[in-house]
Write a protein that binds this DNA or RNA. Structure first.
Lengths: 204, 204
DNA sequence: CATCTAATTAGATGAGTGTCAAATGGAAGG
DNA sequence: CCTTCCATTTGACACTCATCTAATTAGATG
């Protein structure tokens, strides 16, 4: 599943000339921290700094031998990011048209009403999280609509907001991010615009 | 031709959550600056700021109509960057092996000596820039070896250095960057490690 | 244990940058 | 000409971040 802020972090990691050069050197094979420092003409401390950033987005793997640490690229994740990005920016014309007929808006509305009726108690609590994707999105959207657009929320506030409906705020918060109802920068949260919700729906 | 700092700039441009969200919104179709500001809950000034960064790396195109500016994605460049990056990090095992036999080191050395003898005057000036890629790289490398690794050069210094060999320092400086003999960050230049030279040779 | 090497952490510094409010520019329409 | 509506520029502020030095840790080897 695509997570917006993971992709942003990935690009941020590669958006530095020193780290990009590290990556390129590593395409030739594994290198120790010291070798990297020498080739890039930077201090070992700086190598550690950058290695941590690359590790944080899983672009490099590390292996310890004797006193040295050997770095290698993680091609699996490199490919994963490339694919995710490609999918993300594919415009709708090049996206395969769905063969099956979309249900009418009317039908969608009825489904929505019934899901909300079935998954929420009379006093507005969420009974449990639907496992079916379509229904889960209906519940998430129903909750997300109660958040104020453009306002910044701390993680604590988001937890409290979700907690008012269901005790497992951690799971639901993660789902909010994954399905692009919320976006997170550093430690602050904000509601995404509706278009983003819909875009993600077509990607799921 | 791939340019390292262009790819870094591209990643830096996408390494910001606001810009990434702009891109995603634009995958759905064109939007005016005002609409973007509203949907992203940021001021028009901030939209302009980010739009400038995206434009600088050719990720968006703009069209003026009446008072509004309409932004659209530039899919051509998006694909170009994706391809360049893919090629960059492809490890040598997945790269197609060259069919033809590589010339021996001995033969390479003799070519190198003859190129240097033929393209430089007795007092060390460069007569002209070879048009054949292989010979051009020999000349560029010969010059690049005279630069101190790990030292930072201003553009003025690089120009002066090249100018001592040939008056057209602008062209040669660009070739230095394109073939990864030098790398540039902001306005300062530095010599790349030998491995980077060789890596780029296999990509050319 | 003592020593050596490599890596990491901590702290400091300087450059870069995301954001907005206010001022400016410029086109469209009275 | 004046007004209105966007877009841009400018200046300021806070915050991030790349880099270094110096000190510390971790592991290997006498």
């Amino acid at each position: 599943m695509i997570q917006l802020d993971k992709i942003v972090s990935y690009h941020k990691a590669l958006g530095d000339p020193t780290r990009m050069r590290m990556i390129i050197l590593l395409t030739e094979g594994e290198l120790t921290g010291q070798e990297l420092a020498e080739k890039l003409c930077i201090s070992p401390a700086t190598v550690t700094h950058h290695a941590a950033k690359l590790r944080a987005v899983s672009l490099v793997k590390e292996r310890r031998d004797k006193n040295s640490i050997y770095f290698t690229l993680d091609h699996y994740f490199m490919d994963a990011y490339a694919k995710a990005m490609q999918q993300l920016v594919a415009d709708r014309h090049t996206r395969p048209a769905s063969e099956e007929q979309e249900p009418t808006d009317d039908k969608n509305d009825r489904l929505k009403l019934s899901v909300i009726k079935n998954f929420f108690t009379a006093d507005g609590k969420l009974k449990h999280i639907p496992s079916q994707l379509k229904k889960k999105r209906i519940v998430l959207q129903f909750l997300a609509e109660k958040l104020e657009p453009g306002r910044s929320y701390t993680e604590k506030e988001i937890n409290a907001f979700i907690g008012a409906f269901h005790p497992d705020f951690a799971t639901i918060r993660r789902e909010f991010i994954m399905h692009a109802y919320l976006f997170r920068d550093n430690e602050i949260y904000e509601r995404n615009p509706r278009e983003m919700w819909e875009k993600w729906e077509t990607l799921s």
